[in-house]
Protein backbone atom coordinates (compact mmCIF):
# COMPACT_ATOMS: atom_id res chain seq x y z
CA UNK A 1 0.00 0.00 0.00
CA UNK A 2 1.23 3.45 -0.88
CA UNK A 3 2.00 5.94 1.85
CA UNK A 4 0.18 9.27 1.95
CA UNK A 5 3.43 10.93 0.89
CA UNK A 6 3.76 8.67 -2.16
CA UNK A 7 0.14 9.33 -3.19
CA UNK A 8 0.71 13.08 -2.85
CA UNK A 9 3.94 12.87 -4.86
CA UNK A 10 2.22 11.01 -7.69
CA UNK A 11 -0.66 13.48 -7.69
CA UNK A 12 1.76 16.42 -7.97
CA UNK A 13 3.65 14.72 -10.80
CA UNK A 14 0.40 14.12 -12.68
CA UNK A 15 -0.73 17.69 -12.06
CA UNK A 16 2.55 19.03 -13.50
CA UNK A 17 2.17 16.79 -16.58
CA UNK A 18 -1.42 17.87 -17.14
CA UNK A 19 -0.46 21.52 -16.80
CA UNK A 20 2.53 21.09 -19.13
CA UNK A 21 0.18 19.51 -21.66
CA UNK A 22 -2.07 22.58 -21.55
CA UNK A 23 0.77 25.08 -21.68
CA UNK A 24 2.57 23.35 -24.54
CA UNK A 25 -0.73 23.09 -26.45
CA UNK A 26 -1.31 26.83 -26.03
CA UNK A 27 2.22 28.23 -26.21
CA UNK A 28 4.28 25.59 -27.98
CA UNK A 29 7.27 23.67 -26.64
CA UNK A 30 9.34 26.81 -26.16
CA UNK A 31 7.18 27.61 -23.11
CA UNK A 32 9.35 27.73 -20.00
CA UNK A 33 9.22 25.61 -16.87
CA UNK A 34 8.54 28.88 -15.02
CA UNK A 35 5.31 29.27 -16.97
CA UNK A 36 4.35 25.67 -16.21
CA UNK A 37 5.14 26.07 -12.51
CA UNK A 38 3.10 29.25 -12.31
CA UNK A 39 0.11 27.72 -14.08
CA UNK A 40 0.33 24.61 -11.90
CA UNK A 41 0.66 26.73 -8.73
CA UNK A 42 3.81 24.91 -7.66
CA UNK A 43 7.29 26.28 -7.02
CA UNK A 44 9.75 26.18 -9.89
CA UNK A 45 11.94 23.77 -7.91
CA UNK A 46 9.05 21.31 -7.55
CA UNK A 47 9.07 20.74 -11.31
CA UNK A 48 12.69 19.57 -11.11
CA UNK A 49 12.02 17.33 -8.13
CA UNK A 50 9.80 15.29 -10.45
CA UNK A 51 11.56 15.89 -13.77
CA UNK A 52 15.33 16.44 -13.61
CA UNK A 53 15.44 18.22 -16.98
CA UNK A 54 13.05 19.90 -19.42
CA UNK A 55 13.88 17.11 -21.88
CA UNK A 56 12.79 14.55 -19.30
CA UNK A 57 9.52 16.43 -18.74
CA UNK A 58 8.75 16.48 -22.47
CA UNK A 59 9.67 12.81 -22.93
CA UNK A 60 7.52 11.74 -19.94
CA UNK A 61 4.64 13.81 -21.27
CA UNK A 62 4.92 12.22 -24.72
CA UNK A 63 5.21 8.73 -23.17
CA UNK A 64 1.93 9.33 -21.32
CA UNK A 65 0.37 10.68 -24.51
CA UNK A 66 1.48 7.52 -26.36
CA UNK A 67 -0.13 5.34 -23.72
CA UNK A 68 -3.36 7.31 -24.06
CA UNK A 69 -3.39 6.95 -27.87
CA UNK A 70 -2.49 3.27 -27.56
CA UNK A 71 -5.39 2.64 -25.20
CA UNK A 72 -7.87 4.44 -27.42
CA UNK A 73 -6.85 2.83 -30.71
CA UNK A 74 -6.46 -0.64 -29.27
CA UNK A 75 -8.98 -3.19 -30.38
CA UNK A 76 -10.26 -1.18 -33.31
CA UNK A 77 -8.43 -3.11 -35.99
CA UNK A 78 -9.43 -6.50 -34.64
CA UNK A 79 -13.15 -6.14 -35.02
CA UNK A 80 -13.12 -6.65 -38.78
CA UNK A 81 -14.05 -3.03 -39.08
CA UNK A 82 -13.88 -1.19 -42.37
CA UNK A 83 -10.98 1.02 -43.42
CA UNK A 84 -13.32 3.99 -43.13
CA UNK A 85 -14.13 3.13 -39.51
CA UNK A 86 -10.46 2.92 -38.60
CA UNK A 87 -9.56 6.22 -40.26
CA UNK A 88 -12.49 7.87 -38.54
CA UNK A 89 -11.35 6.49 -35.18
CA UNK A 90 -7.82 7.79 -35.80
CA UNK A 91 -9.11 11.27 -36.60
CA UNK A 92 -11.48 11.20 -33.63
CA UNK A 93 -8.55 10.46 -31.29
CA UNK A 94 -6.59 13.35 -32.83
CA UNK A 95 -9.57 15.70 -32.49
CA UNK A 96 -9.60 14.98 -28.76
CA UNK A 97 -6.00 16.24 -28.51
CA UNK A 98 -5.99 18.52 -31.54
CA UNK A 99 -4.28 21.62 -30.12
CA UNK A 100 -1.48 19.62 -28.49
CA UNK A 101 -0.98 17.30 -31.47
CA UNK A 102 -0.84 20.25 -33.85
CA UNK A 103 1.94 21.81 -31.78
CA UNK A 104 3.72 18.50 -31.62
CA UNK A 105 3.81 17.86 -35.36
CA UNK A 106 4.76 21.49 -36.04
CA UNK A 107 7.67 21.47 -33.60
CA UNK A 108 8.85 17.87 -33.47
CA UNK A 109 11.97 18.62 -35.51
CA UNK A 110 13.20 21.03 -32.85
CA UNK A 111 12.50 18.70 -29.92
CA UNK A 112 15.25 16.68 -28.19
CA UNK A 113 16.36 13.47 -29.93
CA UNK A 114 14.65 11.18 -27.43
CA UNK A 115 11.35 13.02 -27.90
CA UNK A 116 11.66 12.43 -31.64
CA UNK A 117 11.98 8.70 -31.03
CA UNK A 118 8.91 8.78 -28.79
CA UNK A 119 7.09 10.54 -31.63
CA UNK A 120 8.12 7.77 -34.06
CA UNK A 121 6.85 5.20 -31.58
CA UNK A 122 3.58 7.10 -31.35
CA UNK A 123 3.16 6.69 -35.11
CA UNK A 124 4.13 3.01 -34.77
CA UNK A 125 1.08 2.49 -32.57
CA UNK A 126 -1.13 3.94 -35.29
CA UNK A 127 0.67 2.10 -38.09
CA UNK A 128 0.31 -1.21 -36.20
CA UNK A 129 -3.49 -0.92 -36.25
CA UNK A 130 -3.58 0.64 -39.72
CA UNK A 131 -1.42 -2.17 -41.10
CA UNK A 132 -3.84 -4.82 -39.79
CA UNK A 133 -6.74 -3.16 -41.59
CA UNK A 134 -4.78 -2.66 -44.83
CA UNK A 135 -3.47 -6.25 -44.81
CA UNK A 136 -7.05 -7.46 -44.59
CA UNK A 137 -8.08 -5.15 -47.42
CA UNK A 138 -5.17 -6.39 -49.54
CA UNK A 139 -6.23 -10.00 -48.95
CA UNK A 140 -9.73 -9.07 -50.01
CA UNK A 141 -8.18 -7.23 -53.01
CA UNK A 142 -10.08 -4.05 -52.20
CA UNK A 143 -7.02 -1.77 -52.13
CA UNK A 144 -4.25 -1.23 -54.67
CA UNK A 145 -0.86 -2.89 -54.30
CA UNK A 146 0.85 0.14 -52.81
CA UNK A 147 3.63 -0.37 -50.20
CA UNK A 148 2.30 -0.05 -46.67
CA UNK A 149 4.64 2.80 -45.73
CA UNK A 150 3.44 4.86 -48.72
CA UNK A 151 -0.20 4.31 -47.72
CA UNK A 152 0.52 5.19 -44.10
CA UNK A 153 2.75 8.19 -44.83
CA UNK A 154 0.25 9.51 -47.38
CA UNK A 155 -2.52 9.38 -44.80
CA UNK A 156 -0.38 11.04 -42.14
CA UNK A 157 0.85 13.60 -44.67
CA UNK A 158 -2.71 14.52 -45.57
CA UNK A 159 -3.88 14.82 -41.96
CA UNK A 160 -0.75 16.70 -40.89
CA UNK A 161 -1.01 19.12 -43.82
CA UNK A 162 -4.54 20.11 -42.85
CA UNK A 163 -3.54 20.41 -39.21
CA UNK A 164 -0.40 22.49 -39.65
CA UNK A 165 -2.11 24.74 -42.22
CA UNK A 166 -5.51 24.83 -40.55
CA UNK A 167 -5.65 28.62 -40.96
CA UNK A 168 -6.13 28.01 -44.70
CA UNK A 169 -9.31 26.06 -44.10
CA UNK A 170 -11.13 27.14 -40.97
CA UNK A 171 -10.93 29.02 -37.72
CA UNK A 172 -12.31 26.03 -35.82
CA UNK A 173 -11.29 22.39 -35.62
CA UNK A 174 -10.00 21.52 -39.08
CA UNK A 175 -10.22 17.79 -38.41
CA UNK A 176 -13.82 18.03 -37.30
CA UNK A 177 -14.81 20.04 -40.35
CA UNK A 178 -12.80 18.10 -42.95
CA UNK A 179 -12.93 14.60 -41.47
CA UNK A 180 -15.45 13.17 -43.92
CA UNK A 181 -13.84 14.74 -46.97
CA UNK A 182 -10.35 13.52 -46.04
CA UNK A 183 -11.46 9.98 -45.27
CA UNK A 184 -13.72 9.57 -48.26
CA UNK A 185 -11.15 10.85 -50.77
CA UNK A 186 -8.19 9.07 -49.24
CA UNK A 187 -10.07 5.80 -49.64
CA UNK A 188 -10.83 6.67 -53.26
CA UNK A 189 -7.11 7.15 -53.86
CA UNK A 190 -6.10 3.71 -52.60
CA UNK A 191 -9.11 1.50 -53.35
CA UNK A 192 -9.23 -0.72 -56.43
Amino acid sequence: MKTKRQVQKEATRLHILETAYQIYAEEGFSATTNQIAKAASVSHGTIFVHFPTVENLIVCLLDDFNAEINGQLHGLSEKNEQLETFLEAHINVLIRYEAFYKRLISEVNSLPQEAKFVFINMQSIVSFHFNQVIERCKNEKTVKEIPMHIIFNSWLGLVHYYLTNSYLFTEGSVLTEYKEELICNFIKLIEK
Partner: peptide, 18 residues
Protein backbone atom coordinates in the same frame (compact mmCIF):
# COMPACT_ATOMS: atom_id res chain seq x y z
CA UNK B 1 8.75 0.02 -38.45
CA UNK B 2 10.58 0.04 -41.78
CA UNK B 3 7.68 -1.70 -43.51
CA UNK B 4 4.93 0.54 -42.18
CA UNK B 5 6.72 3.90 -41.91
CA UNK B 6 9.53 3.56 -44.45
CA UNK B 7 12.21 4.71 -42.00
CA UNK B 8 15.91 4.47 -42.71
CA UNK B 9 17.28 1.38 -40.91
CA UNK B 10 19.49 3.16 -38.38
CA UNK B 11 16.62 5.50 -37.38
CA UNK B 12 14.27 2.53 -36.99
CA UNK B 13 16.89 0.76 -34.82
CA UNK B 14 17.23 3.75 -32.50
CA UNK B 15 13.47 4.29 -32.21
CA UNK B 16 12.91 0.62 -31.40
CA UNK B 17 15.72 0.64 -28.82
CA UNK B 18 14.12 3.70 -27.20
Amino acid sequence: TIKTQGLEKSVAEKAVAN
